[in-house]
Design a protein around this nucleic acid. Structure first.
Lengths: 213, 213
DNA sequence: CACACAATACAAAGCAGTTGGTATTTTTTG
DNA sequence: CAAAAAATACCAACTGCTTTGTATTGTGTG
């Protein structure tokens, strides 16, 4: 690829101008990176690719109009040579899997440090894949014994499941992931809902968001 | 306050390190601005304020643990002299009123340009308020023609349905309430989901909450 | 007056999750 | 050790919503 002397040409796709500007500043002093263009959403990005051919795209997942994953799919089918690093706000395991499945070359959280970013961009530019380690989601809410969740007396397993539910895993996905029967997952879920006194998935979603679990 | 020769000391509170780094780069060449510290969430920010006394805080609204508005409330009650500019994603104009009500000194969308940002920081630093011109007098997202919802081109009826969906009406309940066939409601809902590019009720719930519809 | 769009209505197949059970096995704990 | 609690597993009926269609009836605009 573009290793020998050549600059790595990059398109950034994100709907936050300030974030893009920040990235730009961050990268503009890098001798081997050239920011070719920017796009505010997936649609704009795909339009750009008609006339531009970057080596690498930094692609935000959460964009309006056409989201990151849909854009990724299109990019990889029409321009398979272009490397794509997905950017995401949150550490959601299944999103990483989805990115991998969609053919992304890398995945970064928006709270990475500069070095990590550059490192990732370079390795991906050289044809490597770059995905985060499977970190056991260390959400203080879940293992903090003083957590407000404590009052509901959820068991360990139930708390664990809640983390996956929070990340939009379906029952089937959780079953697969944890090597459980889907029936078991349903039972756990049933108990969780009972203990939290919730009636349906939407209420659970609201609960999770309201208390920032 | 700190106008005469003194630098404007600033704390940035945002959970995206990359964004912060960008801001930092953006601001570090400004002779009259000094970035004192950063915080990844509201909790951290409030901790910092025990030992630090900035002139100005750039405060992201969407943060984990303690969100921007809650942090704003605490800051303004404990340290009323500290100026606060709220940062928000571009499509949350309707939260401006909330920021004003909470005592913020300014409000910026994350897609502002550098000049605008600096301008705002300086005027707020000098004691002025700085809110976007486009102040929506409309308290309803749904009939505001400038609403961010406009981009999705929902029809009148679809917007109406969305209000009920927001209130957890089931399709059947909406049908009853509006004297429609449940099939009609399903059709509308289908079209809404398509236009918003959402896949299931949970995603819709998150969408509604995220953009505070 | 056409034409596009909005609003209405219908139907069958299917998916995800709930409800209300039952029933083992494993682990914890008094 | 014995009892309680947790984790596992199963099942069938049910609800709510989605998907993928089709189709008719207004309604406003060039």
């Amino acid at each position: 690829m573009e290793m020998t002397g050549e600059k790595l040409s990059v398109i950034i796709a994100d709907d936050h101008t300030l974030f893009i500007n920040g990235l730009r500043m961050l990268l503009q002093n890098e001798p081997d990176i050239e920011i070719m263009n920017i796009a505010a959403n997936g649609k704009e990005l795909l339009g750009l690719l008609h006339t531009h051919s970057p080596d690498l795209i930094l692609l935000d997942i959460n964009m309006p109009v056409i989201n990151g994953f849909d854009a990724l799919k299109k990019i990889k089918s029409f321009y398979p040579k272009i490397k794509v690093i997905m950017l995401s706000t949150y550490n959601e395991e299944h999103l990483i899997e989805k990115a991998k499945a969609g053919g992304a070359d890398g995945y970064l959280f928006k709270n990475v440090e500069k070095d990590e970013l550059l490192q990732a961009m370079h390795s991906v530019g050289q044809g490597q894949l770059c995905f985060p380690h499977k970190t056991p989601v260390n959400n203080s809410v879940f293992d903090d014994s003083d957590s407000f969740l404590k009052q509901f007396q959820l068991t360990k397993r139930e708390l664990e499941l809640l983390q996956f539910i929070k990340q939009n895993y379906t029952n089937q996905q959780m079953a697969d992931h944890l090597h459980l029967s889907i029936y078991t997952v349903e039972t756990h879920r049933k108990n969780i809902m009972q203990k939290l006194n919730l009636k349906n998935p939407v209420e659970l979603t609201k609960f999770i968001i309201q208390y920032d679990l």
